[in-house]
Design a protein around this nucleic acid. Structure first.
Lengths: 191, 191
DNA sequence: GCCATACATGTCACTCGATGCCATAAGCGT
DNA sequence: ACGCTTATGGCATCGAGTGACATGTATGGC
């Protein structure tokens, strides 16, 4: 079972992330020091760094770990499904499930260049894992799954940006994702 | 004409960037302090930051400013050319012209996560400017040029990764770029 | 050539993120 | 209750980055 140790650790970590997110939302990422967060949560600055390797990671704690989650769903899709439809279906559902907690974190990330950069980087790692899962499922070569997963990521990005440009109505979002996936479908192999 | 002031400034900046690149290549980005660079170039740490806003920027100085350069070439393409072919032609040529100086800088960037993240970010800004130029030239809407330029960036990325995976022979590179552009061509609008 | 001005540089001091070390307190299994 | 692991706080330190101040040096007007 989950020992007390592990549970309290999780609780403190979540508390720190929550406090941090609140302060970041209020004053902006750069205008909040680690000391501020630690004091507000009732621990020392030193302890903060025992829960998060860096200040930035307190923000990413609130965002779903996309990689393994999605890779797992990929492997669970119906056998005959073409790769592009598979990615479309899984990612479409993933977009549909962005909870309110993640929303606040994403807003902070969006408004801080340094965080945006790191976020992209983490997403790129996730894409790598997804590409692996897709390769295993479909038997396509590395180049093909790279093209497919990269195109899928691009589709989500473009859809999101267009969504923001056009106001951001909730029911428009999935339609834009569908449109982007439709227009960006890679040709030839495994389509 | 270019005053003496401006010229010496440029010279010192280039010298700092060169010294920095050398040290980074030798010992890795993280194992070189700004003090090291400054001393090696014969200036104070404070002066280093008068030439570069951050340590990272000493690396990016060696890489061509892609944005405006490419955007300019976009606007100079033959009038009737479809958007995708236009991007393909301009970026193909850009890939072909990566000089040896940039090569060293790119290697340092590639081997340092923090630099990779910032590099992606700068490239995203460049993509924005290119998208603007493309919109002006073709009259396409923001969503369409976003899809096109993002897909083009994806094509370059995938081609580069495949190129690295398969050994990195110089004459293979452009062929992979062509293949990636071929497979990732967005459908419908302005193709 | 002389002088006032703008600009470049160096030094010092400081903030903040991040890490190592050590002493201490709290939990854990036996 | 006894050792053992683990969490914590405090302290010192490093490195990136910034602000303030003083000094030197090129520039432009006379």
């Amino acid at each position: 079972m989950a020992g007390l140790r592990e549970r309290t650790r999780r609780a403190v970590q979540a508390e720190l992330a929550a406090v941090a997110l609140e302060l970041f939302t209020e004053r902006g990422f750069d205008d909040v020091t680690v000391d501020d967060i630690a004091r507000a949560a009732g621990v020392s600055k030193r302890s903060f760094f025992r829960y998060f390797p860096a200040k930035e990671d307190a923000v990413f704690d609130g965002v779903r770990l996309m990689g393994d989650d999605i890779a797992e769903q990929i492997t669970g899709r119906p056998a005959g499904e073409p790769a592009w439809e598979c990615l479309h279906a899984v990612l479409r559902e993933w977009v549909a499930r962005i909870d309110a907690g993640s929303r606040a974190a994403l807003r902070v990330i969006e408004s801080t260049p340094a965080l945006r950069a790191r976020f992209q980087q983490k997403r790129e790692e996730a894409r790598g894992r997804i590409a692996e899962a897709l390769a295993e499922r479909t038997g396509l070569d590395a180049f093909a799954v790279d093209l497919l997963t990269s195109a899928a990521a691009t589709a989500i990005d473009c859809a999101t940006r267009e969504w923001l440009r056009t106001g951001g109505a909730e029911d428009e979002r999935l339609k834009l994702v569908d449109t982007a996936f439709d227009r960006l479908r890679p040709t030839c192999a495994g389509s």
